[in-house]
């Protein structure tokens, strides 16, 4: 192998007219895999209020409240996604499949209050 300076020149010149590997975010198109863990969704009708998700959440981002009565349950999940670390352990912990996730990662907001959502 011949040694010398500037060995990368050919490779670099090839890239001048090639399509750049980056996009001009937020204008460009963002490709996110469907398996990506984003914000969680909650299906209140399936929830039985066992609170396993609350117990397993490492970031204490979830609270579950029962807005209805003991017989007629109306569960509500309050998620603080400023605390959430998007590990989706709650999805695994839930035995009734009431919690699911979607690849929604563009969650930036301007206020901490906006980060607390009731699902």
């Amino acid at each position: 192998m011949r040694k010398g300076p500037g060995k990368i020149t050919g490779e670099a010149l090839r890239h001048v007219f090639a399509k750049p590997a980056t996009i001009s975010y937020p204008a460009g198109e963002l490709v996110i895999d469907k398996n990506y863990r984003g914000r969680i969704n909650f299906d209140a009708s399936k929830c039985i209020g066992c609170k396993l998700c609350v117990r397993d959440c490492p970031a204490n981002a979830i609270t579950i409240d029962n807005l209805g009565t003991k017989e007629e349950k109306k569960m509500q999940l309050t998620l603080n996604y400023a605390h959430c670390i998007f590990c989706c352990q709650c999805v695994d912990s839930c035995n009734k499949d009431a919690i699911s996730f979607e690849p929604n990662i563009e969650l930036a907001g301007t206020s901490r209050k906006d980060m607390i959502v009731k699902l």
Binding site: A12, L13, H15, V16, A18, P20, A21, I23, S24
Partner: peptide
């Protein structure tokens, strides 16, 4: 811009 293109990047506006 040229520097960025040589590195396969978008480069600044």
């Amino acid at each position: 811009r040229i520097y960025a293109r040589l590195q396969n990047r978008m480069g600044p506006p």
